[in-house]
Design a protein around this nucleic acid. Structure first.
Length: 482
RNA sequence: GCGGAAGUAGCUCAUCUGGCAGAGCAUCAGUUUCCCAAACUGAAGGCAGCGGGUUCAAGUCCCGUCUUCCGCUCCA
């Protein structure tokens, strides 16, 4: 990371706080690590991004419907999904090198070495014992196993290890008000399972035929070992997911379809294509037969914003197995029962928010009419997503100009977010609107009283034009509404 | 979790080898202002991250602690 990029990232974080987009959580108590709150403009922007996604996925597509599943789910859900077994990794640290290892990776690495030396039997015995101890969560014996085999850290070459500790991906809490009778449940680490467990409810009640999709936005929670980089990686975050149910055997073509569709969505916001790239996963998760990320070039480098996963029939099969409920679909076209395959599109709302900020934040040097230089900080937010669409500014706060401004505001505010201000000079007010990304400013002056025209000023170009006050509402409705 | 750096007004920073905590910008009120961070007047804003120690005296020196940033470890 270059220092220029680093400075730009710091500047964006500072700007986000300064102008009410994102605050550190519980800041008066020194904050809570990797948790953030969205302020007045931030919550508007976030909502607009969510709405833009929701509309493009559900309203504009007849074969996708939405749901809003609870964050709490039956604990067996996470057994079935694999989260309990696959993401509770025991970890161990080497005290000399300070390196941290996953215990299974460490032992497997040692077993590989034994095999390379021809000690296949010893290696297999070791792996078998490890599996059995992992199953029993017997960390003391696992530690002993590492000590007995004199497994060393590849950096420090020592076996000076800490005790084994467990890393829990999922947050847990208790359901039930009576102490002692409470049952441990988890805060969902992904929203997808709420879709899978409701698959038949949704399919039947909305009479959907395959292929069809179920969309959902909502909070998810993950314990991260390192949670940093502002809102890029948070413990509490919001996902926008869509699971698309398809006939087995057609997953390749639908995977390609959604890869293209999702990229089109990103580009529809007017963000340049060069900032995006696909990244194919070579190492696949336990549920996927193909996976890729849509990455964006953040100030901290190319990072994942969205994932497209071909999840096979893994999830529904698992839920069928654990629930003993049939989760098959009857395909009338081919007269067959089957468990559908699934293509998942999963985008992080908070990451998309950071993407928009990264794209929008610009420090410009401008040349004024008299030739002198000036600078401004402007958020070139795609206007459909901007927190405030229109600022109405009486040039001075008397002579009836505020009253005219109020009439215009009252006409516009049922349709889109408006902002009124009569304080300070017009230049200062323009700059304040630039800083929060308001695409249009309308100024009421004395000429307005004579011929009902106003000045409309454009954020990106700073150009102004004179138009009839009666055109404002329709002009903006045509361009700022999602 | 480990290593390094940093915490003073909303923001950016001063306060020299320990001696009454300051400036610019921003905020608020008023006057003035007809198009790109204007001027004037006034106001508000702080337990110097927090806790302890040394000292006549600590923002400043020492110890602890918390938080943030940078680099590692993990990442479906």
């Amino acid at each position: 990371m270059s220092s220029t990029q680093d400075n730009r990232f710091q500047a964006i974080i500072a700007h986000a706080k300064e102008y009410g987009f994102v605050f550190p959580s519980s800041e008066i108590y020194d904050g809570l690590s990797a948790v953030y709150d969205y302020g007045p403009y931030g919550s508007e922007l976030k909502k607009n991004i969510r709405d833009y996604w929701w509309k493009s996925m559900t309203q504009l597509r007849e074969n996708i419907v939405g749901i809003d599943a609870a964050i709490f789910m039956h604990p067996t859900t996470w057994k079935a999904s694999g989260h309990v077994d696959n993401f509770n990794d025991p970890m161990i640290d080497n005290k000399d090198s300070k390196k941290r290892y996953r215990v299974d990776h460490l032992i497997e690495g040692f077993a590989d070495k034994l095999k390379a030396e021809g000690n296949d039997k010893e290696a297999n015995d070791l792996l078998a014992e490890m599996e059995s101890l992992l199953e029993k969560e017997d960390y003391a014996s696992l530690k002993k196993l590492i000590d007995d085999h004199k497994i060393v850290c590849s950096i420090s070459e020592t076996c000076n290890w800490t005790d084994i500790r467990q890393f829990n991906l999922m947050f847990s809490t208790q359901i039930g008000s009576v102490a002692g009778e409470a049952e441990t449940i988890y805060l969902r680490p992904e929203t997808a399972q709420g879709i899978f467990v409701n698959f038949l409810n949704v399919q039947k009640t909305s009479r959907m035929k395959i292929p069809f999709g179920i969309a959902q936005t909502g909070k998810a929670f993950r314990n991260e070992i390192v949670a940093r980089q502002f809102i890029f990686r948070m413990r509490e975050f919001e996902q926008m997911e869509m699971q698309f149910f398809i006939r087995p055997g057609t997953q390749k073509e639908w995977y390609e379809y959604w890869k293209e569709e999702r990229m089109k969505w990103h580009l529809s916001l007017g963000i340049s294509q060069e900032k995006y790239q696909f990244h194919n996963h070579t190492k696949l998760a336990h549920y996927a037969d193909a996976a890729l990320d849509i990455e964006y070039e953040f100030p901290i480098g190319f990072k994942e914003v969205e994932g497209i996963h071909s999840r096979t029939d893994y999830d529904l099969t698992q839920h069928q197995k654990y629930s003993n409920k049939k989760l098959t679909y009857f395909d009338t076209e081919i007269n067959q029962h089957y468990i559908p395959y699934v293509i998942e599109t999963s985008i992080g709302l908070d990451r998309m928010f950071l993407l928009i900020l990264s794209h929008s934040y610009n420090e410009e040097t401008i040349t004024k009419e008299d030739g002198t230089k000036d600078s401004r900080i402007v958020l070139n937010i795609p206007e459909k997503l901007a927190p405030v669409k229109l600022a109405v500014l009486p040039l001075i706060k008397k002579d009836g100009l505020p009253e005219i401004a109020r009439i215009l505001i009252n006409e516009c505010k049922p349709h889109f977010k408006c902002f009124y201000e009569e304080k300070d000079t017009i230049g200062k007010r323009y700059r304040r609107q630039d800083a929060i990304g308001t695409p249009y400013c309308v100024t009421i002056d004395h000429q307005t009283k004579e011929n009902n025209t106003v000045t409309i000023r454009y954020r990106d170009t700073m150009k102004q034009e004179r138009i009839s006050i009666s055109e404002i509402n329709n002009k903006l409705k045509a361009s700022v509404i999602l």
